[in-house]
Design a protein around this nucleic acid. Sequence first.
DNA 1: CCGTTTCTGTTGTAAAAACAACCGACTTGT
DNA 2: ACAAGTCGGTTGTTTTTACAACAGAAACGG
Lengths: 221, 221
Amino acid sequence: MKKFIPVLMETKLFDGVMAYDIEAMLSCLQATLCTYKKGEHIYRQGDNIHRIAVPVEGSIIIQNFDYWGNRSIINMIGTGEMFGEAYAAPDSGAMTNDVIAAEDCTVMFFDINRILTVCSSACRFHTTVVQNLVFALSEKNRKLMQKLGHMSKRTTREKLISYLSEQARKNGSGSFTIPFNRQQLADFLSVDRSAMSNELCRLRDDGMIEFDKNRFILKYK
Amino acid sequence: MKKFIPVLMETKLFDGVMAYDIEAMLSCLQATLCTYKKGEHIYRQGDNIHRIAVPVEGSIIIQNFDYWGNRSIINMIGTGEMFGEAYAAPDSGAMTNDVIAAEDCTVMFFDINRILTVCSSACRFHTTVVQNLVFALSEKNRKLMQKLGHMSKRTTREKLISYLSEQARKNGSGSFTIPFNRQQLADFLSVDRSAMSNELCRLRDDGMIEFDKNRFILKYK
DNA sequence: CCGTTTCTGTTGTAAAAACAACCGACTTGT
DNA sequence: ACAAGTCGGTTGTTTTTACAACAGAAACGG
């Protein structure tokens, strides 16, 4: 458990908390560790969850399948990011998605109630963590709205442009790699893979982008 | 200001706080009131905001226009709901959407920093409000994910079924009214109005739904 | 009361996406 | 080394959507 403290220090949840204090909080927050093989379920649709999951090695995918078997990737949670904070409220109801390991990974879990219930003086940074939780929640909120921005575009081409523009902004450069392969990107944007592949090539032919595997370059024109 | 305390008591933010204490907090949280005519801007794209907005009369719409003038309705915030909590973090950046009055309305604003910074003993329910904020944020998170669920459906028909099913669940009945007219619903689901109108009639002809204006009935079949 | 505006449904056409099927390049495991 | 699987691109067909234009009904305003 201790070996992951450097990872935790980089997380939004423990921002501003020293290693020594994180270690003290681990037991207070009832932290547990679990490893998963690629594709294994971490949570399933219908589960009632009360823990925040933080991948400390590898990354996880939030997805769901509709009645006809189409997969939608809601989000990808990388190392040091977190999932489950949306179920902080006691009456959150059951999960509507599946959470699976995108690759072999290790996930640390924290009890949400322990975070929200300020405990004894042992955890002097507890209020910091609560505030961090608020910030993390509001940031995820903005990200979801951003994703809604992509999804609300009418055509595959516009969705791609919207997504790639955001990635470029995020990376501060027109040259970047994305965390998805083609099928995953299609599932993330909720479009057909072949149609998307087609559109990517058309964007390239129009001189707007270049790409190789999951590395993209947006051109100035 | 005082006359809206009954409304505030019903909000998620002040859940569990007594009228007397809410009144005391109003000044502590630097609450301000502002009225808007239908269509007026409350916030504009690019604004840096640091206040939570709660409509105490009427409702507001979160929307944006793309380069070609297509409107997308991100969300509708009814009386007693809130907007702006996603910008709680100091480094949230500028708003990416417009916020306008859906109808003539009155909005109360609260300073986010005042909420997060626990003040003197005057506000004994301050920690309750912070916890309420966490719950509200996580609930909005789930709602956004739910909306992503609708948006990720491939066809207009599926989007409609997904949306209407959720409304039925929310109302605990297959008979309900929606807060949108046709154009707004189309903008909310990011589809073409006429195509959607078409699809609604097809659903009706298939015996799956009935509707009159914004009142819908889902049939059992 | 009447002209105007808004709202909703309808139709036809053009554009776009979904779907299915296939191919070649590359990876992986044995 | 080879069989099997994955991945990305391509093509053709069918389905669905966007768009534009119009019409009737209802709501609105003076």
